[in-house]
Amino acid sequence: MSTLSTRGLARLFLPNRVIRSSTALALVAFWMATVLTVWLLSPFASLPTPGEVWTALGALWWRHGMGPELFTTMKLILHALALTVAISMALSYATMIAFFRPLVAAVSKLRFLGLTGLVFPFTLVTGGGYSLKVALLTFGMTTFFVTSMAQVVLEIPRVAFDHMRVLGASERRIFWEVVVRGTLDRALDVLRQNAAIGWAMITMVEGISRAEGGIGAMILNQNKHFLLAEVYAILLVILVLGLLMDYGMGVLTDLLCPYGRLERVRR
């Protein structure tokens, strides 16, 4: 028995070993407990304790209207995400057409630009306020989405197209089957990653026009007054929301594209 346990424990430290899902859960619990312990025993006095963060969270939620602020942010992110998907998918699929390739490549390269210098031209175009925030967030996510998705499209092997050609399919059907439907699971995966990028950008984007509120504006206001417990409470909420969204998208991907999960190698 003890030999088995030792072997089981050894597997956790060896490369390319498959572990049970219960073991995986235990590992997550172990790491969470470790992080919590490190936090509790932290020598930095200025770092708020978990208890202080929890109290700040309650105060933000019940007295400072965190709920409506969250709703404002969620609306902004989902709006921008919908626009990002529409624009990015169109651009990524356009890589199949030679005429559009330089345009797609240029959009992808724009990911190196920060948003700061772009506020002015975007304000001129959108008129500011909510539209400006949607435009900036959409721009930020689109540059990353297009980069990843165009790569997915470019990596489709030639034999996938030839296979459909010898079946007698028209180029339009080949595009639909091989490029659009054949990469749907990967597109949803890319979307998952880009939703996370959206959350990472939210503070900056909402900071541009704080009057309209949102969780990003809230965190900046708390940070200005050095209310660290409140800042960490908001960060925690963002993390939980982001993880929930990520999980939801994962479930959606498995529902819409069950074949994707079948192809993944279990490690």
């Binding site: 092997p157 996938a160 030839d162 296979h163 089957e177 054949g182």
Partner: peptide, 9 residues
Amino acid sequence: FQDYPLLRH
């Protein structure tokens, strides 16, 4: 073809 490509979806 050699690797028997099929529509994976």
